[in-house]
Lab assay of single mutants.
Amino acid sequence: KKIKIDLKKGPEGLGFTVVTRDSSIHGPGPIFVKNILPKGAAIKDGRLQSGDRILEVNGRDVTGRTQEELVAMLRSTKQGETASLVIAR
């Protein structure tokens, strides 16, 4: 099931960490939400869960991207702006 979640970045950030699983010589594996932090946009919104697979960030497919690339995409969202995620659960 795909779910679109918009998180408005506040002073505590987006409020979640990510982890890559099953990376191989063929490229990075899928990226999942690792933890929801006690402060930040994710816990206020309440929909994002540990174990959700991140498919898109701000309309860009993240398949084949590294964890570092995904984190850079999320960090490029400025405070007060919205990060738009599509996740699979």
Rank of each mutant, 00 (worst) to 15 (best):
L85C: 04
P28S: 10
L55H: 06
K2V: 03
K44C: 13
T66I: 06
F32I: 13
G13T: 03
R53A: 14
N35C: 14
T77S: 11
K39W: 04
V86N: 08
L85W: 00
L7F: 04
R75K: 01
E69R: 05
V62N: 03
D22E: 09
V71S: 12
A72Q: 05
E69G: 08
I25T: 05
Q67A: 04
I25W: 03
V19Q: 15
Q67G: 04
I87H: 02
S24H: 03
K2A: 02
Q79M: 07
A42H: 01
K34W: 05
V19E: 15
S76C: 10
A72P: 06
P28W: 08
S50I: 11
R60V: 04
L48A: 01
G46E: 06
Q49M: 10
E68A: 06
I31Q: 05
G59M: 06
I5H: 00
V57P: 01
G46S: 06
G46P: 02
T17L: 12
Q67S: 08
R47A: 09
L85T: 03
I3H: 04
R47G: 10
L55F: 11
I87R: 05
K2F: 08
A83M: 13
G27Y: 07
V19L: 15
T66G: 09
R21T: 14
G13Q: 06
L85Q: 02
V33T: 02
S23I: 05
I31R: 02
D52P: 00
I87Q: 06
H26Y: 08
A41P: 15
L55V: 08
V71P: 03
F32E: 12
Q49P: 00
K44R: 06
L70Y: 05
D22P: 05
G29S: 07
V57H: 03
I87W: 02
K2I: 07
K2R: 02
A83S: 15
I36F: 03
F16L: 11
V33N: 01
Q67M: 03
K9P: 15
E69C: 07
L37R: 02
T63W: 07
R60C: 08
E69P: 02
G46K: 08
T66S: 09
A42W: 01
V62W: 05
S24E: 13
G27F: 07
K34R: 11
K39E: 14
R89H: 06
A72W: 05
G29H: 11
T82P: 07
I5Y: 01
R53W: 09
Q79D: 09
G13C: 05
F32K: 05
S50P: 12
I36H: 01
T82W: 08
V19D: 15
I43L: 06
G59N: 11
G80H: 06
V71D: 15
L74I: 09
G59P: 01
R60N: 07
V62S: 03
A72I: 14
L48T: 01
G59W: 02
P30D: 15
G10Q: 10
P28V: 10
L55T: 06
V57Q: 01
T77E: 11
E69Q: 06
I43M: 05
L7C: 05
P28T: 12
V18T: 15
V86L: 10
V18M: 15
D61V: 10
G10N: 15
A83N: 07
I43Y: 05
Q49L: 09
G80T: 12
V18H: 05
L14T: 01
R60I: 07
G10S: 14
V33P: 01
G10F: 07
K9F: 15
L37Y: 04
S24D: 11
S84M: 04
G59Y: 12
I43T: 11
K8L: 05
R53P: 02
R75W: 04
R65L: 04
G80F: 08
M73V: 07
G46V: 01
I5G: 00
G51K: 06
V19P: 02
S76E: 14
L7M: 15
K39G: 05
M73N: 04
G51D: 08
K4D: 08
G80P: 03
D22S: 05
P28G: 13
P28Y: 04
E56A: 08
R75S: 05
N35G: 12
D6I: 15
K44Q: 06
K8A: 14
L14C: 03
Q67P: 04
S76K: 14
K8R: 07
G13M: 02
A42D: 02
K39H: 10
K39P: 02
G27C: 08
V86G: 10
M73S: 05
M73Y: 04
F32T: 11
A88Y: 15
G15A: 00
P38D: 14
V19R: 15
V33M: 01
T63R: 06
L85K: 01
R53C: 13
V62L: 10
L48Y: 00
V33G: 01
L70F: 10
V86T: 12
S50G: 13
V57G: 01
V19S: 12
S50T: 08
M73P: 02
P30G: 05
I54M: 07
A41E: 14
R21S: 13
P38T: 15
K34H: 10
K39Q: 13
T77Y: 14
E12Q: 05
G80V: 03
I36N: 02
G15I: 00
F32Q: 13
G27K: 08
R65N: 08
S23F: 10
I43G: 06
I31M: 13
K2G: 04
A42I: 01
I43F: 06
G27V: 10
K78M: 08
L74A: 03
G27T: 12
N58A: 12
A72D: 13
R89F: 00
T17K: 06
K4C: 12
E69A: 08
G46F: 02
G13F: 01
P30W: 05
A72E: 13
T17A: 04
R89M: 01
D22G: 04
G27M: 11
I25P: 07
P38E: 14
K1N: 15
D45K: 01
G40E: 02
Q79L: 08
R47S: 11
I5R: 00
I54S: 00
G27E: 13
T20H: 07
I5T: 01
T20C: 08
T63G: 06
V19M: 15
V62G: 03
P28I: 12
